[in-house]
Each structure stands twice: as C-alpha cells, then as structure tokens.
Design a binder for these strands. Structure first.
Lengths: 244, 244
DNA sequence: CGACGAATTGAGCGGCATCAATACTTGTGG
DNA sequence: CCACAAGTATTGATGCCGCTCAATTCGTCG
C-alpha cells in the first residue's frame, strides 16, 4: 500500500469508503509539511484560505484574550481535520500551534470545494463529524460551566484517553499526555497551580499515577463518576448515511 | 408565495439557492408542530431519529449533571436547525425545551439523507453552518473558561443581540431576552443571584437598561470591550462554495 | 385578592486565583 | 560529560470572586 490517507483512515472507522472516495481524500494530503514543536501554524485574525489534515504529532487550537490569558479550544491528534473554521471565515478565529513535532498536510479550501462537489457522500460525512465535534464542545462547556476543578481535570484526562484510544489500539490504561500543567489549565479554565494540586490529590487517592510524562488511569470508573464524563464514542450510529 | 421555508430563508442569507434546493428544504417543514412554553421536545439519553427546524419562538438545549445543576448549551431562534446531534448518536446527548410557545418542524433523519444525496450543495452548506456553530461554541468556551462574571454577562447579551439581528432588521439597540436570570446563569456558568448583581451593576453604570423583559444596550462598544466579544457575523465568506 | 415564580438584597463562606519561593527536568553549549 | 539556563513542577500563604443560604419584594396570572 502506498501513502495511505490518514484522514481516510479516520473516516473509515465510521463508514466504509469507496476507492474513488479514498483516492480523493488522499489527494488532500499530497503536501505534507514538517512542523517543529511550538511552531505556529495559523495565527488568529490573519487571513486564511488553508485547511489541514494532521498526520503526525499533536496540535492545539487556542485564543488569547485581551488580558493575555489563553483558552485552549481543542487538542488535535493524527487523522484529525483541522482549521475547518476557514471554510466560513476569511480570518482565522483561532490560532494553531504544534504541541509536538508534527506533520500537517495543508490544502486550499478550493480543493475542499472540489471534494464536496465530486463526493457528496464525503460532504455528508464531514457534516456529521463536524456535529460530533460540536457535541464534544458542549460536553466541555458543561464541564467548564458547572463542575469543580477536580471534575474538570478528571473529565479532561478521560477525554484525551478515549480519543487517543480511537486510533491507537495499544493504549490500555496509560498514555502520554504531552501537555504541561499550564496547558491543561488553559484547556479547562484553571491555573497551572491548581491543576497541580488536583493531579497530586488524585494521585494520592489512587485514581491515577504518573511517571515521566506518562499518565496511568487506575480507576476509570471512579474518574468517570468524578468528572461526570460520558463516553460518546460508544453509541455513534452512522448507518443511515447514503450508501456508496 | 406559499409557505416559505424558514430554513431556506436562513440559508439564503449566506448563499443564493436554486428553486429546486428551496423546494427540497421546504419539504422538511411539512409537519409544523405547536409546542407550549416549557414543553420538552427531546429528552437527553432517549433514542432519537428526528431533527427539527425551528419556525417560531425560542428553544434551548441543555444537559443536567448528576448533581442536578443545569448547563444550557444553546438558545435557538427561528430559522435554526435543531438537534443535529441525532445525525450521529442514537441517543440524544442533550435535552430540548421550548423557552416560549413555539412551532417546530420535525423530520426524520432519513429525510435528511435524501436531501444530502440529492442536493450536495446543501450538504456542503450544512457542513459550513455546523462549523459556524462550532466556532460559536469555542467563543463561549473561552468566555466560561477565562473571563469574569461581568464579562460573561456582557458577552452573552451581545451574542443574543447580534444573533437576533441577523434575522430581525427591526432590532436597533433593544430586544426581548425572554430568559430568566436563572436561565442566563445556567447558560454562562453562574448562579442567578450573581447574574442579578452583574446586571444590576451594568445598569447602574449606564451600560444597559431594562423595562419589562426588554433589554436595551446603551453602550455596545464598551460592552464588547468588557465581554471580550468579537462579532463573527461580519466576516463570513462563503463565496467559494460550489455554484448552483 | 391570593399565589407562585422571579427578582432583589444581605451575610458569610469556600474554592480557586495570585504571589512567591523552591525543587526538579531538560536541552544546550562549552 | 558537565554546567548552566530556561522551562516546568511543587508547595505555602493570603485574598477575592462568586456561591450558598435566607429573607423580602415585585410581577403576573388566575
């Protein structure tokens, strides 16, 4: 097999794709670009016409508020479709920075247009995945709006854990977070100091353990309880989609 | 003109539609259903296969956490497309309740499938609008995660204001919120008590004024500053979409 | 007029922020 | 391979924003 499309691979986890569709998706990834850890891929408020497929590494999207504080909006993993905001806005609503060395595949939004025109079923699928991301956002909204610091940390860890598991079957109960405590805090609306206290507390309570950057979830059930977490990946149902 | 489609009308604000497309969209609204204020349209965790177009009134989506607290996820206005989560999940991730007497047009997700198959351009458009809603969610995420109570109230009022203005040209500087202070609080992660204090304070500072349920924004510019609000409606750009 | 939900106001408290100091880790150049 | 620098983690002390509890007042609808 030649250069598989990372993105097609992601999509086929949900719905089988035709060869033509796979080929079209692979075309989006014709221009891989290596990105150094910490490098900015897109800067908020600057004009944009590009979208990305993330092939390797991790990327985050965030905004900086006028007082200098940062809200991390989402952490992206390989196979994710990044920067879909540029489909509607002429200026980037959010910044994109690589959390680790990464490989992204940029493509012009006109390439997306062609894809949508020629492969309506892919268009429908993108619509659905966009909805899934929206639901994921609402979960975080409820977490930030209505739960305690400890609950947010628990929910955040579980979210990362389950999202990583979707593409990586090796993960059993531990994973590399690759985020500083400050970054965790900026994701869930806390200071790094308080994130530290919460993590430390959860460690003492035997909920998690750490070594190097690796986090092990020792009691997923109790964590889900503390974080009011619901795993949405389970009851996805895309069978009603147009057949290929 | 016969029964215009509320939804088609909303879409044409962004991109011109062909007659065939309009007709197809109108079909989604063939079964209007009247809903009483406070009535539940969809209950979280129950099986769903229906989506809705909101034709009249206001509807909110929300979740209830195990401790009984509520997070309101979004307030919907006429012309909005509701319940798109049911395109991916077999069980509703969120509840839907009418905030006022309302008219919704339910349709089966298989009707949506047919629409997506037969009108790929509409599929693309739905994808884009879903992205817009996602961006709107990220704005609220930053608001909840990183701003003060006062800032959240300001941002919330501005958001309602600008969204209402999209469809109602009569609105100049005042509007009917039709939400209790408790509901505002549940939207932005505050208690009704504190929402009251903030509103009251903003009133004293001459930022807003109230009479009955009507809110008047006296100093939009300063409100935008306080709320760190950015009006996204301005720089939408959908011109690159497939031509009809 | 009575009743119930919503708004308003006060008192007191607690969770998380802020500020600050110290340890640890990692990468870099000599 | 060591030494330093810079970033990250950890811990303590203190303070404030927004929550909780509670008591009126206001508004609206039957």
């Amino acid at each position: 097999m030649v250069a598989t499309s990372c993105f097609a691979e992601q999509l086929t986890r949900h719905v089988p794709l035709s060869d033509a569709e796979k080929t079209a998706l692979t075309k989006l990834e014709e221009n891989p670009r290596k990105i150094k850890r910490g490098a900015m891929i897109q800067r908020a408020n600057e004009p944009i016409t590009e979208l990305f497929v993330l092939r390797e590494g991790r990327v985050m999207s965030f905004v900086i508020l006028p007082d200098g504080s940062r809200q991390i909006l989402r952490v992206y993993f390989p196979g994710d479709f990044i920067g879909s905001a540029s489909t509607i806005y002429s200026r980037a609503p959010e910044s994109l920075v690589a959390l680790s060395d990464a490989v992204v595949c940029p493509f012009d939004k006109h390439a997306l247009r062609r894809l949508l025109e020629e492969h309506p079923r892919v268009a429908a699928l993108l619509f659905l995945l966009s909805n899934a991301e929206r639901v994921s956002m609402t979960d975080r909204l409820a977490s930030l709006g209505r739960t305690s610091a400890k609950a947010r940390v628990a929910a955040f860890l579980l979210d990362m854990f389950h999202r990583l598991r979707v593409t990586d079957d090796n993960i059993k109960d531990s994973f590399e977070l690759k985020l500083t405590q400050e970054e965790i805090g900026d994701s869930i609306g806390l200071t790094s100091v308080h994130v530290n206290r919460m993590i430390r507390q959860m460690e003492q309570e035997g909920l998690i353990s750490r070594s190097n950057g690796r986090i092990t979830l020792l009691d997923v059930e109790r964590l889900e309880d503390i974080g009011h977490y619901t795993n949405r990946h389970k009851d996805m149902d895309l069978d009603w989609l147009p057949a290929s």
